[in-house]
Design a protein around this nucleic acid. Structure first.
Length: 575
RNA sequence: CGGGAUGUAGCGCAGCUUGGGAGCGCACUUGAAUGGGGUUCAAGGGGUCGAAGGUUCAAAUCCUUUCAUCCCGACCA
C-alpha cells in the first residue's frame, strides 16, 4: 500500500474528549473516529488491526474444534423472555419495536439465540458436543461508555458457545478454550495473565478472565510472584496470617471521639494503629440488614459477602439506613449492641483479637478494649476482605503482586442455566432426556486493539506487536522525487510484500520530519528509511520502533540482512 | 441515574466576568524558498458561536429551556 493513496488521517493533537492513551493514539493515528458516544468508525488502519486480531482468533478457534457461524444482531424479545433476561438484563439491553409493534433488542450477547438454534437441531447425545463461535458486532447500552474502544457501546466481540452431554464434557470444552486463549494472546505478543474470576451462582473454579497487563487497566489482578496463581481481586482469597492484637482487658470502655468518623481519624485521636480499629460496614443484602467487620486498614469484598449469603443483590447501606440501624449518626457504627442487625460477619483476621476499637453506635463515641467474642454477637468469621499489597499467595505463600489489567477475554462454564430455561434437551443412550451443559467464551476483539496500545506506547505513539500491527513495516522514502531512491524503495517494498509482510510505502511528497512522526504514530514495529544520502553510501536505515534502536542494512545481500534484523525485532516482542 | 464540567472553522483553543468589530494556532488552497525529526514567508478560503425561546437599540457574551459530549461513582468483552 502506498501512503499517498491511503486514507490515513493522522492528527498532531489529541481530541479534547480522549482521556486514555489508547483512545488518543487511535484517533491521532487515523485508526478510528467517534460517531457518537461509545460508537466508533473503524478507519482503514483500525480495521486492519481488528482483522489481524480476528484472524488469530479464528485460526485458534478452528484449531480448537470450534466452527464459525454468524448470528443476527437484532434479536426477538420472545427468546429473552424465555430465559427471564428480558426483565433482568436491565437498561444495557437496547430494546425497540418494529412497525408491527413487535419487540426486539440489539444483541449484547447470544446465549438465547444460539441455544434456540441448537435445541432445534440437536436431539441426541450422538450429536454432541456442539462447539460454535462468531465474530460479530455487539451492542450494550453501557451506563457510561468511556475510554474510546475500551468501553464502547458498540464493539466487536468473538463469542463462542459449547454444548456437551455432561459436566465432564463441558470441562473438556472449557479446557480446550482456555488453552486456545493462552495461544491467542501469546501469539498477539501481549503480556497477559489468566486469572480466576468470580463465577457467581454457578460455582466452582470454572471462570477465568484473561487480563492484558497495563498500568492504566481498570481492573486489579492478584498474582503470585512465584507460582501460577492469579485471581481477580474480587475473588482472590485473603490469607489469615494470625492476629497481633491479643492483649486482654477486663471490659470495653466508652471513649469520646468528637468528629472522628473515619478509621484514620479515630486511630489518630485514640493513638492506636489502624489495625486495632474495627471497621463496621453495613449492607442491604436482599432487603436484610447485615454488618461486616474488617480490620481498619482493610476493605470489604462485597462479592465475598454476596457469595457467603448466596444473595442476589448486595448494596452498601444508605446513610439513612445506617442511622436507622445503628440509631447513631453515620461514622460510629460498631458491633457491640447492634441489636437491629441480626447478621454480623467478621473477617477471619479479627477472630483471635481481644483489644479492638469499634464504633459505639452513638454520636462522637467509640469503644476501646473490645473483645469481639466476648462483647458482640458475631454470626460467623469468614474471609470478607479484599486482598491488598502485602498479602500472600493462598497456594504457595509467596508475596502477591497486584498489577493492573484490562479484561480482554472471559471463559465461563454456564452449566444448564440457559439449556434448562429454554429446554435445550438431548436424549442419552438410555433414552432419558437431559439439558445440555453449556459454556460461553468471549474475547473483546476491538478492546484487544485498545489494550495492545494501552500496554505498548511511548511519547511518539503506539508500539504495535508485529502480529497485530495495521502494517508490520513502513518504508519511508525521504526523497520520493528522486527516481533512483523511489525505484530502490519500491523494490524493497516488493521484497517485503513477497515475504508476506504487510508493508506501507510512504511515498508522500512531505518533509522527512512529517514521515518520521507519522511512522512512529501508527506504531509499525519495523521502519526502513531510504534517502539519497543512504543510497550513496549503499545502505538503508532501519529502526526498531519498540526499542527505538536504529541501525543500517547494507544494500549488498540486503534481503539476508533484512530478514536477520526483522527476526531480532520479532524476538524482542516475545518477552 | 446522582455529582462536576464543556459546547465558538476539520482539530486544539481564546473571547463571555463588564453586551456593540467573530478571533488565534494547526490543517486546507495558491505562490515562492526550503528539503534527514511535525520548515519558512506571503496571499487566500472556510463559522446559523450546539439548538430553541426571552431580555435589549444591539447577544458568542445576560436569562430560561433543551440537546450533545466528556470526567468521577453502580456494569462487563
Amino acid at each position: 500500500m502506498r501512503w499517498s493513496e491511503s486514507y490515513i488521517p493522522t492528527l498532531k493533537e489529541s481530541p479534547a474528549d480522549a482521556e486514555v492513551i489508547s483512545h488518543k493514539l487511535l484517533v491521532r493515528a487515523g485508526m478510528v473516529r467517534k460517531l457518537t458516544s461509545g460508537i466508533y468508525v473503524y478507519l482503514p488502519l483500525g480495521l486492519r488491526a481488528l482483522e489481524k486480531v480476528s484472524r488469530i482468533v479464528r485460526e485458534e478457534m478452528n484449531a480448537a474444534g470450534f466452527q464459525e457461524l454468524l448470528m443476527p444482531m437484532v434479536q426477538p424479545a420472545d427468546l429473552w423472555k424465555e430465559t427471564g433476561r428480558w426483565e433482568f438484563y436491565g437498561k444495557e439491553l437496547l430494546r425497540f419495536r418494529d412497525r408491527n409493534e413487535r419487540e426486539y433488542c440489539l444483541g449484547p450477547t447470544h446465549e438465547e439465540v444460539i441455544t434456540d438454534l441448537v435445541r432445534g437441531e440437536v436431539k441426541s447425545y450422538r450429536q454432541l458436543p456442539v462447539r460454535l463461535y462468531q465474530i460479530q458486532t455487539k451492542f450494550r447500552d453501557e451506563i457510561r461508555p468511556r475510554f474510546g474502544l475500551m468501553r464502547g457501546r458498540e464493539f466487536v466481540m468473538k463469542d463462542a458457545y459449547s454444548f456437551d452431554v455432561d459436566d465432564a464434557g463441558a470441562d473438556k470444552s472449557y479446557q480446550r478454550m482456555f488453552e486456545a486463549y493462552q495461544r491467542i494472546f501469546s501469539r498477539m505478543g501481549l503480556r497477559f495473565r489468566a486469572v480466576e474470576a468470580d463465577s457467581g451462582s454457578i460455582g466452582g473454579n470454572f471462570s477465568h478472565e484473561f487480563m492484558v497487563l497495563a498500568d492504566t487497566g481498570e481492573d486489579t489482578v492478584a498474582a503470585c510472584s512465584a507460582c501460577a496463581y492469579a485471581a481477580n481481586t474480587e475473588r482472590a482469597e485473603a490469607v489469615w496470617k494470625g492476629t497481633a492484637n491479643t492483649v486482654s482487658c477486663a471490659s470495653y470502655v466508652l471513649m469520646p471521639t468528637p468528629g472522628a468518623h473515619t478509621v484514620e481519624e479515630v486511630a489518630t485521636l485514640l493513638q492506636v494503629p489502624a489495625t486495632s480499629v474495627v471497621k463496621t460496614m453495613l449492607y442491604d443484602v436482599d432487603g436484610e440488614a447485615v454488618a461486616v467487620l474488617v480490620r481498619g486498614d482493610r476493605a470489604v469484598n462485597e462479592i465475598k459477602l454476596k457469595n457467603l449469603m448466596n444473595a442476589t443483590e448486595v448494596t452498601l447501606a444508605t446513610p439513612a439506613q445506617v442511622e436507622e440501624w445503628t440509631e447513631a449518626p453515620l461514622g460510629f457504627a460498631g458491633p457491640v449492641g447492634l441489636n437491629k442487625v441480626k447478621r454480623i460477619y467478621a473477617d477471619l483476621e479479627l477472630q483471635a483479637g481481644t483489644d479492638y476499637v469499634t464504633g459505639a453506635n452513638a454520636g462522637d463515641a467509640h469503644f476501646i478494649h473490645v473483645d469481639l467474642n466476648r462483647d458482640a454477637q458475631i454470626s460467623a468469621y469468614a474471609d470478607m476482605r479484599l486482598v491488598m499489597e502485602g498479602d500472600v499467595c493462598p497456594r504457595c505463600g509467596a508475596p502477591l503482586i497486584l498489577p493492573r489489567g484490562i479484561e480482554v477475554g472471559h471463559v465461563f462454564k454456564l452449566g444448564c442455566k440457559y439449556s434448562a430455561a429454554m429446554k435445550a434437551h438431548y436424549v442419552d443412550e438410555a433414552g432419558a432426556e437431559h439439558p445440555m451443559v453449556m459454556g460461553c467464551y468471549g474475547i473483546g476483539v476491538s478492546r484487544v486493539v485498545a489494550a495492545a496500545i494501552e500496554q505498548n506506547n511511548d511519547a511518539n505513539g503506539a508500539l504495535f506487536p508485529p502480529a497485530i500491527a495495521p502494517f508490520e513495516a513502513v518504508v519511508l522514502v525521504l526523497d520520493p522525487k528522486n527516481a533512483d531512491v523511489m525505484t530502490k524503495a519500491t523494490a524493497i517494498y516488493n521484497m517485503l510484500s513477497g515475504m508476506g509482510v504487510d508493508v506501507l510505502l510512504d511515498d508522500r511528497d512531505e518533509r522527512p520530519g512529517v514521515k518520521f512522526k507519522d511512522a512512529d504514530l501508527i506504531g509499525s514495529p519495523f521502519q526502513l528509511v531510504l534517502g539519497a544520502k543512504g543510497l550513496e553510501k549503499g545502505i538503508v536505515e532501519c529502526k526498531d520502533r519498540r526499542t527505538g534502536a536504529k541501525g543500517t542494512l547494507p544494500l549488498e545481500a540486503f534481503e539476508e540482512h533484512l530478514v536477520q534484523w526483522m527476526q531480532q525485532v520479532r524476538e524482542g516482542w516475545h518477552i
